[in-house]
Amino acid sequence: MKRVLLIVVSCSLLAANDLEQGLASWYGESFHGQRAASGEIYDMQQMTAAHRTLPFGTSVRVRRLDSGASVVVRINDRGPEPESRIIDLSRAAAQELGIVTPGVVPVALEVVKAPSANSKALYAVQVGTFRNFDNARRTRVLISQNYSARIVTHHGETDLWSVLAGECPTRLEAESLAGEIRAHVAGMRDAYVVRIETGASIDAD
């Protein structure tokens, strides 16, 4: 008698309209009133979110994979910092989605409405964000040994300084650069790709 071994593999597939799947988190009071990467003042009571590469003004449906609950948010900031997460929600969006208490949940993202294409986008690799300018400057010096690098200032009640490496015309090229930096520059394992758009109210150094 032949024995048949049946192996069942469980996997999560993207639905037809899903852009990506991953973990969502939220950010609130410590950033409330500060200037977001788009130049807007972050208001944690508005339905907004931070994403690394979607154009500012994009409307995105965020759907929980465990419950099916969903909210629509507008992208007006860059992040989240942890590479394992794909979107950072405002407190209002997190509350409506029911993730304030758990903090991090698996979600799927779907673009509901794209902004008008009136700005040229470039991509860079964000290697760190700092509350101390001297730390940002030291990181820029380190990165500048092998790559072009600059400091971007985010103005708010507390200024933040991000160090960006490179300036690539496509996301694919930027992802390649990010992989190279993570592999060859000590302490840069969390480097990730961000989208740069003309018209954002930030100062570059």
Results as ranks from 00 to 15, higher is better:
residue 1 M to T: 11
residue 1 M to F: 09
residue 2 K to F: 12
residue 3 R to V: 15
residue 3 R to T: 15
residue 6 L to I: 14
residue 9 V to A: 13
residue 9 V to S: 09
residue 11 C to L: 13
residue 16 A to N: 10
residue 19 L to A: 07
residue 19 L to W: 11
residue 19 L to Q: 09
residue 22 G to N: 03
residue 22 G to T: 03
residue 24 A to V: 04
residue 27 Y to D: 02
residue 27 Y to Q: 02
residue 28 G to P: 01
residue 31 F to D: 07
residue 32 H to Y: 06
residue 33 G to N: 08
residue 40 E to S: 09
residue 41 I to G: 01
residue 41 I to C: 00
residue 43 D to P: 00
residue 43 D to L: 06
residue 44 M to C: 03
residue 44 M to A: 07
residue 45 Q to C: 04
residue 46 Q to V: 02
residue 47 M to Y: 10
residue 48 T to M: 04
residue 49 A to Y: 03
residue 51 H to V: 04
residue 53 T to G: 09
residue 54 L to Q: 06
residue 57 G to Y: 08
residue 62 V to M: 05
residue 63 R to F: 04
residue 64 R to I: 01
residue 67 S to E: 01
residue 70 S to T: 08
residue 75 I to V: 15
residue 78 R to T: 14
residue 78 R to S: 11
residue 79 G to H: 00
residue 80 P to I: 12
residue 81 E to I: 12
residue 82 P to C: 12
residue 83 E to C: 05
residue 83 E to Q: 10
residue 85 R to K: 13
residue 88 D to L: 06
residue 89 L to Q: 01
residue 90 S to Q: 05
residue 90 S to F: 06
residue 90 S to L: 10
residue 91 R to Q: 13
residue 91 R to Y: 12
residue 91 R to N: 02
residue 94 A to G: 15
residue 98 G to D: 05
residue 98 G to F: 03
residue 102 P to H: 06
residue 102 P to R: 09
residue 106 P to D: 10
residue 108 A to W: 02
residue 112 V to I: 15
residue 114 A to C: 02
residue 115 P to L: 11
residue 115 P to H: 06
residue 116 S to P: 00
residue 126 Q to R: 10
residue 129 T to C: 12
residue 137 R to C: 01
residue 138 R to L: 14
residue 141 V to E: 15
residue 144 S to F: 08
residue 145 Q to Y: 03
residue 146 N to E: 15
residue 149 A to T: 01
residue 152 V to F: 02
residue 154 H to R: 12
residue 155 H to Y: 15
residue 156 G to D: 07
residue 156 G to E: 08
residue 157 E to T: 11
residue 158 T to F: 10
residue 172 L to H: 06
residue 173 E to H: 10
residue 175 E to A: 04
residue 176 S to T: 15
residue 180 E to V: 05
residue 182 R to P: 00
residue 183 A to E: 14
residue 183 A to S: 13
residue 189 R to A: 12
residue 189 R to L: 10
residue 190 D to V: 06
residue 192 Y to H: 10
residue 192 Y to K: 07
residue 193 V to H: 06
residue 195 R to A: 11
residue 197 E to M: 12
residue 197 E to S: 12
residue 201 S to A: 15
residue 201 S to D: 14
residue 203 D to P: 04
residue 204 A to N: 04
